[in-house]
Design a protein around this nucleic acid. Structure first.
Ligand code: NAD
Ligand code: NAD
Lengths: 216, 216
DNA sequence: CCCATAAAGATCTAATTGTATCGATTGACG
DNA sequence: CGTCAATCGATACAATTAGATCTTTATGGG
């Protein structure tokens, strides 16, 4: 128990932390010096107890009556998520989705920087997209090794997703953020994060169906 | 208990159902007539027991030794999710993300059709994006009412997300799929589904951090 | 200087989800 | 035609997570 340096948190907690972080940064900009779990909870529509427990896991200590010192709590969350030092990532597949992601400014605030983008389409290779020149996919594994890139973002056509994932792993990439609907087969030591739009849609559809049948 | 016609499922189950559906459709194309929970589980890297329980909730009945009849199980999942009749949806905010979503073919297989797209930018209004003409946002509430659209997809600039959501609700929209980082405040009867990229990234980052500290 | 109070922090309980076990059924095969 | 093996389906068990209660602490007002 005690030999583990860094506490490990449950997935629901991890998913809420970025929401706290975003709100806290905004509150800091407004000049607030302390943030209590209570106001954070109210602002985000969550239970105060959940918020307090989530914040506790990051190691931050709050002061009764005041809450958590703004700088400390922000630092603690960033530290806990590993967002203090921005990580380099490769994006592969500069189609419409890849295009959107490359242009999204929000990632830099979450410790992620696009070190390079790759594609296999000759029409796309060499083009500059949102300030990044698109490189040839063939160079990817070699470059990943040289730059010690650990995160790969997959936005290629579904049918080639496994091949590209293999190439990423060959290049030493240790975590793959998979936006394709393909179920990837990877070694144990590689972390997979699937971004499944269909799943979210399923939750929404089902809730809508339940609501509709309740009061038609 | 028994007066509820349709069973309600937990979120994790709902999120897995689309994965089953996609795989089952592919198996059907390959000419398979039955699908057992075991092979589905193996294919998707899940526990067979979980798959069986998930499939059971849809009401489908399987046959020992064979599995579930392909047509029945597919039908049962679609029915359960409300994907048998495609629903019309409005997409608001045809920026880079909205552009990508409009061009995504996958949604039609998940019971969702973009009835129309809207924006406020005069440079975008009137343009045709992936076969859809972009309309003026001012027309949205009125059109939503007339077409009885129940689903709204939010891909506008974060700062105007609440305003646009209000307009959607004014138009009678009952479920909002929110791709912006804004925490929306909506009446109880409106269903909110937030698509939070930062949350997924947090899970990935944290796992990477844990892995790295385990074997550096 | 003390008291009322808001908020953190610890401990417990309940619900949800995942995991395991066991029997029942049915088609395949010898 | 009978045995076998695979699979469903139900039930029981365990772990995780959400939610609730209670105590402690420190601050700000009187
Ligand atoms: N567009 C969306 O909104 C959306 C939503 C959810 C999921 N997805 C998934 O994301 C993926 C990409 O979607 P998209 O709409 O951007 O498709 P797209 O066709 O626009 O883009 C795919 C890109 O991948 C590139 N590519 C193909 N093979 C490659 C290879 N071997 N190496 C490198 N690059 C290669 C293509 O050149 C193209 O630029 C798809 O799997 C899709 O299912 C897209
Ligand atoms: N691009 C991404 O990859 C990405 C990822 C995650 C989240 N998001 C979020 O999605 C949203 C859209 O991102 P984007 O990159 O497409 O931004 P964008 O600026 O490219 O697009 C925003 C669009 O919204 C339109 N718009 C602005 N105000 C409007 C209004 N009042 N009514 C109707 N339309 C209006 C703009 O004209 C523009 O076309 C943002 O909130 C962003 O934070 C984007």
């Amino acid at each position: 128990m005690s030999q583990l340096e860094r506490k490990t948190a449950g997935v629901p907690t991890l998913k809420r932390l970025p929401l706290y972080l975003r709100l806290l940064r905004k509150m800091k900009e407004n000049g607030e010096e302390y943030a209590s779990g209570t106001v954070v909870a109210k602002e985000l529509g969550l239970d105060p107890i959940v918020v307090r427990k989530d914040l506790a896991i990051t190691g931050a200590v709050g002061r009764p009556r005041l809450g958590f010192p703004m700088d400390e709590i922000i630092e603690a969350i960033e530290e806990f998520l590993g967002w203090t030092n921005t990580s380099d990532a490769f994006l592969v597949g500069v189609g419409s989705l890849g295009h959107a992601l490359l242009g999204y400014q929000g990632f830099e605030q979450h410790g992620l920087r696009f070190a390079a983008a790759f594609d296999s389409d000759p029409d796309v290779i060499g083009k500059t997209v949102h300030g990044k020149t698109v490189l040839n996919i063939d160079q990817m594994p070699e470059l990943a090794k040289r730059m010690h890139v650990r995160i790969g973002i997959l936005t290629v056509t579904a049918s080639v997703a496994q091949d590209v994932a293999n190439a990423m792993i060959e290049g030493g990439i240790r975590a793959i953020w998979n936006f394709t609907p393909t179920t990837l087969d990877v070694p144990d030591h590689v972390i997979l994060q699937r971004e499944e739009l269909a799943s979210s849609l399923a939750v929404l559809s089902h809730r809508l169906l339940i609501e509709s049948s309740r009061q038609p």
